[in-house]
C-alpha cells in the first residue's frame, strides 16, 4: 500500500516538475526578451552612470563624479522640478480629458462610431508631426491662432504662446490632449464604461440616486482598476514620452520652463556625446518612474475596487 502511495507521490512530483518546466519553456521567449532588452539595459545604464563613457570609448570608472556634478548643477534641479510639475499636471489633465470624452461617447446613442473616429483621429498623427503643426498654429507673427484672435477682436494682441514662461504650460497641456496617449486612454476608458453592468444603474435609479451619486457609487468604482492602469501608463508616458512633444515644440524653452529630464538626457547623450552623464540622468528618470508607479499602486488600495 505504502509502495503504491510512494509511486503515486513520485509520479505526481514528476508531473509537477514537467508542468513547471513546460510553463517555463512557454514563457522563455518573453523571459529571454525581458532579460536581454529590459533587465540587461537597465543594469548596464546603472553601471555606465559611474563612468565618463562617450560614444567613442567606454570611459573610465569615475565613482560618483557624475552624480556629484549632477546634484551640484542648478540646471538639473530645475529640470527635475519641471519634470515633476509637467508630469503631474499632464497626467491629471489628459486623464480627465480622456475620461470626459469616453463619457460623452458612452452617452452618445447615434453615430457612435463616427464620433469615436473623430475624437481619435488627432491621436493617430505622429507626435512630432503634431508638435510641428501646433508650432505653426501657435507662432507669434505668422500663427493661425493669433491671426484668428486678431480677426475676431480687432486687437493687436498676439501672445508668444510657446516662448512665454507663463503661457507655455497651458499651451503645451492643450497640445497634449491630442496625443496618441490621450486617445488611447479614451478608448480604454470607453471599453471600461461599456462593461459597467446596466442593472447597477437601474438599481441606483430605483433607490433615487442622482447622476452624481450614480457616477460616484457605480461608475467610478467599476472603472477604478482601469483608471489606475491609465494613470500609471500616463505617468510613465509623461516622464518618458514628453520628449517626443517637447523637443520639436519648445526644445526645453523658454528659459528652461519645459526642459524635462528626458530632454536633458537626449541632449547629453546624443548631442553632447556624454554617455556616462546621460546614464546618470536616465537613472534618475528611472527612479522617478518607479516612485510614481509605487505611490500610485500604494494609494490605489484606498480607491481601486476589485470585484473579486
Amino acid at each position: 500500500m505504502s509502495t503504491t502511495k510512494a509511486i503515486q507521490t513520485k509520479q505526481a512530483r514528476k508531473r509537477k516538475i514537467k508542468n513547471a518546466l513546460s510553463a517555463y519553456a512557454f514563457l522563455s521567449p518573453w523571459i529571454i526578451g525581458f532579460l536581454l532588452f529590459s533587465a540587461y539595459p537597465i543594469v548596464y545604464v546603472f553601471t555606465m552612470s559611474f563612468t565618463n563613457a562617450t560614444m567613442m570609448n567606454s570611459g573610465e570608472f569615475v565613482q560618483f563624479d557624475n552624480y556629484i556634478k549632477m546634484f551640484n548643477d542648478s540646471g538639473f534641479w530645475k529640470s527635475l522640478w519641471v519634470t515633476l510639475v509637467f508630469s503631474i499636471f499632464s497626467v491629471i489633465i489628459t486623464i480627465i480629458w480622456a475620461f470626459c470624452l469616453a463619457m460623452l461617447l458612452n452617452a452618445q446613442k447615434r453615430f457612435n462610431g463616427f464620433f469615436q473616429f473623430v475624437y481619435f483621429l488627432p491621436a493617430v498623427v505622429p507626435s512630432v508631426a503634431l508638435a510641428f503643426s501646433f508650432q505653426m498654429i501657435f507662432a507669434k507673427d505668422t500663427g493661425i491662432f493669433n491671426y484668428m484672435i486678431g480677426s475676431v477682436t480687432g486687437s493687436n494682441f498676439s501672445p508668444n504662446w510657446l516662448y512665454d514662461e507663463t503661457l507655455v504650460y497651458p499651451t503645451v497641456f492643450f497640445i497634449m490632449l491630442f496625443t496618441y496617449s490621450t486617445g488611447q486612454m479614451m478608448l480604454i476608458f470607453r471599453s471600461g464604461l461599456k462593461e459597467v453592468p446596466r442593472e447597477l444603474y437601474e438599481a441606483a435609479s430605483l433607490d433615487g440616486a442622482s447622476a452624481f451619486q450614480k457616477f460616484r457609487n457605480v461608475t467610478f468604482p467599476s472603472i477604478s482598476p482601469i483608471l489606475l492602469f491609465n494613470t500609471v501608463m500616463a505617468s510613465i508616458g509623461a516622464l518618458n514620452g514628453a520628449f517626443a512633444i517637447l523637443f520639436p515644440l519648445t526644445e526645453g524653452g523658454p528659459n528652461g520652463a519645459t526642459n524635462v529630464l528626458s530632454l536633458s538626457l537626449y541632449r547629453e547623450v546624443f548631442l553632447n556625446n556624454r554617455i556616462g552623464y546621460g546614464c546618470c540622468l536616465a537613472v534618475i528618470l528611472f527612479l522617478l518612474a518607479v516612485v510614481f508607479a509605487s505611490v500610485q499602486f500604494a494609494m490605489s488600495k484606498k480607491w481601486v475596487y476589485y470585484e473579486n
Binding site: M136, A139, K140, D141, T142, G143
Partner: peptide, 9 residues
Amino acid sequence: SPAPSTDGG
C-alpha cells in the same frame, strides 16, 4: 525685429 518665437514662416 520680431521676438524669438516658433514662427515657421
